[in-house]
């Protein structure tokens, strides 16, 4: 099993367990405020939590937090930027440049100041920034919330490409149509925890 989450608890109500196979796209939906983002953040070990998570059988407690997060990467719904230009965030830079046309972004966007980009552009660039670091699992929190239908389609194509290379995806989305299109498996989150799709 690629990712094995066991009894993950803490600020979430009931502890949660789930598994994710290589190349799978698990979509989690549920009402707002139920803790879907928190769940993803806990899997990435960005918020305090109890329980365990294993990648290819190896517990995250066996490695420092940053090592775990480089392999199990969380992508927040609202992207954060720490340098002035886009390119300063991209590593390796050539891989990022190759990505741009596939997501409908201009080539010169790399030299643009982050503050001048639209929310939608920032959201796609944040995805690129994560994907080029080649994590084994990506935890995507509303990855297309600021995108028009065309850009959403392009990003969903990238999800399939990642799956073909064995990357596992866990996606939180409110968009039911999108869930239908991209999910290989679906989970619903309620106060009682996670349950398989009806």
């Amino acid at each position: 099993m690629l990712l094995d989450v066991r009894n993950l608890g803490g600020k979430l109500g009931r502890p949660v367990s789930m598994t994710l196979a290589a190349g799978e796209c698990l979509v989690i939906s549920g009402p707002s405020g139920i803790g879907k983002s928190l769940l993803l953040r806990m899997i990435a070990d960005l918020d305090e939590n109890t329980g365990d998570a294993r990648l290819n059988g190896r517990s995250r407690m066996a490695m420092p937090g940053p090592h775990w997060r480089r392999q199990v990467m969380y992508l927040a719904a609202e992207s954060g930027w720490w340098a002035e230009t886009v390119s300063a965030h991209m590593q390796p830079l050539p891989d990022a440049a190759a990505f741009l046309p596939r997501l409908g972004l201009r080539a010169d966007v790399m030299d643009a100041p982050v503050s001048q980009l639209s929310t939608g552009e920032r959201q796609r660039l944040a995805f690129i920034r994560a994907a080029i670091r080649k994590p084994a699992v990506m935890l995507l929190d509303e990855p297309t919330s600021a995108l028009d239908p065309a850009s959403t389609g392009l990003l969903e194509d990238e999800f399939s490409r990642l799956r073909q290379t064995g990357t596992g995806l866990i996606v939180v989305t409110h968009n039911a149509d999108q869930a239908e299109r991209i999910a290989t498996r679906r989970l619903f989150m309620t106060r009682d925890g996670l349950s398989e799709a009806r």
Binding site: P66, R69, M73, A76, G80, W81, A126
Partner: peptide
């Protein structure tokens, strides 16, 4: 103020010292 930027770096796998260095 810089919470989103700091957390973005942590989520990408930077250490706490790298993320808060600036």
């Amino acid at each position: 103020r810089e919470r989103a930027a700091i957390e973005a770096r942590l989520a990408l796998g930077d250490s706490r010292y790298a993320a808060l260095r600036d």
